[in-house]
Amino acid sequence: MYLAQLLLVGILSGAVLSLVGVGFTLVLGVGKIANFAHGALVGVGMYAGYSAAKYADINPYLLLIPAALVFAVVGWAVAEMFEWRGRKIGHIGELVVGLALLLLINGALEVVFGADARTYSSVDIGSVKAFGLIIPATQIIAASFTFVVAFVAYLFIQQTRWGRALRAVAENPNAAALHGIRVPIAQRVAVVASIVLAGLSGIIIAPFSVMTPDVGAGYLISAFAVVIVGGVGNTLGAVAAGLGIGVINSLAAGYLSSVWTTLTPLLLLLLFLLVRPVKVQA
């Protein structure tokens, strides 16, 4: 029973990691950009959902579609910045832009909302009882959203013409360009898609998460862990990796001391990097 509970908690928390990781794997795999602000954009989504529920009394789920549009516009602007800096000073330039956005978002969130941790429980849409645990429906929605998004992204990348173009760009941008694929457009699409996903993830996970202005770095790390374990650019791999990390995390918390909760995924990740280094090309 205890084990089943731990597994369930692990899967639910793992789904959140997967959701954040799916967007990151797209931007790293296809856009070839390590967007350091990815986690911070999740944070923006969280606070957007929070503000909607708290100050405007709007169900945050209603926010998803308008937010997707807003994040798409923001994403396009960010993609332009990456492109501009990247062209001028290479990938370090993109790192710097991401880092700058991360810090800017952290600072702005702290000025607006203060440094104190926030939660909100105004979104109560029932709960499910399983293995003696009460699971809020919000968590189940988040997990389902993760699976749907990852599966749709997988189908899109594997089955459609656009997806093939994205894969071609990821594999070899020069060859893709020679075949008439507009590489800059494809890369921007990947960046925009990942940022939209980041924002929506934030809204989806906000109802059951603790928010602080500096959540960005934490989510960046988990996103990276998911991508490394799941394979760069592999959305289904990201889901599997996220669930795996979530379950291991939960088991470590349940059977070992609480110190291990934060440490286990990091150690696993470093171990993973040593045993199976991410393949790189010169």
Binding site: R167, E171, G231, V232
Partner: peptide
């Protein structure tokens, strides 16, 4: 960093 859509780099 290579692309890695299929899980192998």
């Amino acid at each position: 960093m290579s692309s890695n859509l299929s899980g192998t780099g």
